[in-house]
Design a protein around this nucleic acid. Structure first.
Lengths: 130, 130
DNA sequence: AGAAAGCTTGACGTTAACGTAAGTCACGAC
DNA sequence: GTCGTGACTTACGTTAACGTCAAGCTTTCT
């Protein structure tokens, strides 16, 4: 089982990303595959990190934020203090996401009500109306 | 009542935007204030358009989209055909927004459930866990 | 062995919506 | 007249997350 080492191609297919993305993440120090000559080989650790990175993206975390979180873990995830920071960061993000969703909902309601007014929709786009 | 003409400063305060923003919108042909010498003077029409632009932004419309919508209206909002296009555009945007919100909600639920697991949150950020 | 494939690094390009800096102009105040 | 103030134009800078060449090195197929 060379199941443990994957080429860049395999990684791309497995995670549905482009090679450029993986190299980019590496340049940003988010992952650090080993080298066989000049080729990159990704370990299970890399896959784990990538998985988290992609998940983080779905949460809206920026890559830099994810890097910090991953580093926090590396330097002792067992560390109570570090863990707390991670949790705090996550909580803040959660709050952000909820605010964002609320605003989005308001905008949706507003736009929908405009639409429901049928042709009165025009009023919404009537410049100097009245 | 010079209520009808406003300077760039007054506009900025009234709408909470910077001068740069107004000039930028002008460059993008979203508004077109008249000139008193070299100074810009904004009419009620400009204010109406700006209001719509800012509202559109809250809806997530890009400036270019707003420009098109505003133009549609200008060239005969009374035109049945144009109106339909506007409505279609709005409907599509609405659908987009709803999809976006749904995804956001999923991410929120996911992140929240991680957090609710208290310290198990760590698991979410545990690279090669298990 | 020669060519096609695949990987690599490097570096510039892209998009949106302005920010920011530099140098001019014009006008009321003194 | 000239100083301060505000407005103006022009143009480059910014941010994020890659995309898109370009050009060279290997490995692989035939």
């Amino acid at each position: 089982m060379d199941n443990d080492l994957m080429t860049i191609r395999e990684m791309c297919e497995a995670f549905d990303v482009t090679p450029r993305t993986l190299r980019f993440y590496e340049a940003k120090e988010l992952i650090s595959p080993i080298r066989d000559g000049q080729k990159r080989l990704y370990t299970r650790r890399d896959r784990g990190r990538l998985k988290l990175i992609l998940r983080g993206k779905r949460f809206g975390f920026a890559l830099e934020e994810m890097r910090q979180l991953l580093n926090l873990y590396d330097r002792g995830g067992a560390n109570e203090e570090q863990l707390k920071r991670t949790i705090v960061a996550a909580r803040e993000r959660l709050a952000q996401m909820e605010r964002q969703r609320d605003e989005l909902n308001e905008a949706i309601d507003e736009l929908r009500s405009q639409l429901e007014n049928g042709a009165e929709m025009l009023a919404a786009f009537r410049p100097a109306a009245e």
